[in-house]
Each structure stands twice: as structure tokens, then as C-alpha cells.
Amino acid sequence: MHRFLRLSFMLMGLLVASGSYAADTQKPTLTTEDDLGPQVTQPIEFPHYRHAGLKNPDDPTNSDPSKGGMEIDCQYCHTYARRSAVAGIPPLQKCIGCHQNIESVRNKPRIVELFKYWDAKKAIPWKKVHDLPDFVRFNHERHIKRFVEQQNRPTQEACGYCHGDVKSMTVARRSKSLAMGWCASCHEKNHPVTAEGGTPIGNQAYWYKFQKPVVASSDGVVKAQGPNDCWHCHK
């Protein structure tokens, strides 16, 4: 008799555990860990660390340009990201614009290669590093607007949410999974829904996250969760 009871309790425990697991884990948890994509061989090995990397911390004047990076803002070259849904790739003109005035590196092999393309007026066949399936539409402009323009976050931080720590890379490599659950995990966080945040006021908070009541945080900012509408990304 006791045998049966023991077993029943075990079974009950098992079911309760699996049931609560199943019922509670529909939503992915926020994941920020890296999920490295394949190493991509580019026609010219573009050194992101030199352009975007931090200046030599030991030498605040950065008198020796061969050390450390130049802290160029991502948007200096990637200008399309704030103006368009797709980030695109900077035109060759952009590279040349600076490099024709930097004689010191003019004879480095990569720069020589760069000028070969320029002289031939040929676009550099850069390889894709980040690619989403065609039925997924990510809007760069919107994210730059929110994080960089409205919330004044550093560009590198904002870009880094999805692109990783590019400033430490030579050639960029995909470092986040970019899968739907990964995207959604970020959108699960509460966002302010006020006019200052660029979001029209209205019942949107209610619609955004149907089941969650609007959270009024201590600073009085009304918050809701990100769009939960498939048609925002899949059209």
C-alpha cells in the first residue's frame, strides 16, 4: 500500500513540475550571451578595432596613432542605419575620402588593395556577416532613434546589442543569435510609452502587451512591453 502512495506522490510531483515548467516557459528569457557565427573572409580585412576601438588609455593624448583605436563613431561610416531600415554598407567613396589624406598608411597592403578597387571604380564585394531570413524585417532606423537619439546611449552600446563588441574585432563576426526568441527576449522588457519616448500616447500600452497592465514606475514613467504583433517584423 505504501508503495503505491509513494509512487503517487512521485508522479504527482513530476506532473506538477513538468506542468508548471510548460506553463511558465513560453516566453524566452533575456539572453545576451554570445552565439558566434562563422568566421567570414572579407576581400579586405577591415580592422574595426583600429577605427572604432578605444584610444590608448595609457596615453590620453593619443600621440601615437599606431596604438589603440580612433574611437570613430559607428555612424560615421554606417550612415544608412539611422536613415533607413537597412543598414547597408558604406560606399567605397567613404573609405577613400579619409584615406586619400592619410599618407602614413598609404602603402599598407590593405590600403593599396582598397585603392585598386577605387581606381577600377569597382565596388568591394563585402561578404555578409549578419543576415536575417527574407521574411524578417528589422528596422535599424527605429532602434537608433530610440536608443541613440532619444535615450542618449552611446552608439557603440546601442549597436552592440545586436552586433556585439565590434570595436574589439578585426573583421566583424556575428556574435548574437539573432533568432526570433533572442529578439523577443529584449522586447519583453518594459519600455516607456510616453510622448517623450517618441511613442504616441493612447491605449497603445494596452495593445502593446495585451495582458500586462501598464506599469507606472516610481519616476512616473508609464511603461509597457514591446510590440507583440507579428506584423511588425513579418510582412
Binding site: 516566453k27 495585451f210 507583440n228 504583433d229
Partner: peptide, 17 residues
């Protein structure tokens, strides 16, 4: 019980409901 809560829980948490 499992059925009801699994289903209702899923409905309550699905992105688009």
C-alpha cells in the same frame, strides 16, 4: 489540470493573442 493550465498559460503568454 495540466491541460487547462498549459493551454491558458500559453494563451496568456503568446505574443499575439
Amino acid at each position: 489540470l495540466l491541460g487547462f493550465f498549459l493551454i491558458s498559460g500559453a494563451q496568456a503568454n503568446f505574443f499575439e493573442q
